[in-house]
Simulated assay, not measured.
Amino acid sequence: MAEIGSYLKKHTEALVKDVGIEAACELTGKSKATLGRYYSDNSEHLDRFMPVDAVARLEQASSYPHVTSALAELKNITLSHGSPKANSERQGGVNADVIALSQRFAMLMTEYQEAIEDGIITVNEAKRLLRETVALQQVLIDMKLHLQEEST
């Protein structure tokens, strides 16, 4: 259970930082200290998690549904970000997606290579790897939507 809590706290932190701490305070009506407690890994805050309504408000303003995605991953569920109608204005098609996929994967591998050079992946390196993984995931979602559009 502790691993799940830690995983959710990391995604909660990513969500707050995606929106920005000041904006997150406004959207949730919570103080910086309270928001910080939601993703703190200090022992006195291990059982404290962000309320679902606050997550929903922040994810509406974020670039990616960090906590919802984490919950889905814990249940081994795949989510599609956005709707085909909203994404139909995207430039390119499957060919552009394949190029973007190759580029993003290369960036992820570059980050990974740099992270393991000393044999230790630091917290900051892990955060960079996570950002690249999320970006790669978004390209895959775009590709999926293009393929769905072409198959209908």
Rank of each mutant, 00 (worst) to 15 (best):
M1V: 14
M1S: 12
M1K: 13
I4Y: 11
G5F: 00
K9D: 03
K10T: 08
H11F: 02
T12L: 01
D18R: 07
D18N: 12
D18W: 05
V19R: 00
I21K: 11
A23T: 12
A24I: 12
C25V: 13
E26G: 10
L27S: 09
T28C: 02
T34Y: 00
L35R: 02
G36A: 05
R37E: 00
R37N: 03
Y38Q: 01
Y38L: 00
Y38P: 04
Y38M: 01
S40M: 03
S43I: 15
E44G: 03
D47C: 03
F49V: 10
M50E: 00
M50P: 02
P51R: 07
A56V: 14
A56G: 02
A61E: 08
S62C: 05
S62D: 03
S63P: 05
Y64L: 04
Y64I: 10
P65C: 00
H66Y: 03
T68I: 08
S69M: 06
A70P: 09
A70I: 07
A72L: 13
L74K: 10
L74P: 12
K75W: 00
I77C: 00
T78Y: 12
T78W: 12
L79G: 02
H81M: 08
H81L: 11
H81V: 14
S83D: 08
N87P: 07
Q91A: 14
G92T: 09
D97P: 08
D97C: 10
V98R: 06
A100M: 00
L101G: 07
L101T: 13
L101I: 14
Q103E: 07
F105D: 01
L108G: 04
L108P: 06
M109K: 14
M109W: 10
Y112G: 05
E114W: 09
D118L: 12
G119V: 13
G119R: 11
I120T: 14
I120N: 06
T122F: 02
T122S: 13
T122P: 06
V123H: 09
A126E: 11
K127S: 09
K127C: 05
R128A: 11
L130D: 04
E132P: 09
T133W: 00
T133R: 01
V134A: 01
A135Q: 11
Q137I: 12
Q138L: 05
L140P: 04
D142Y: 04
L147A: 01
Q148H: 06
E149K: 12
E150K: 15
T152N: 08
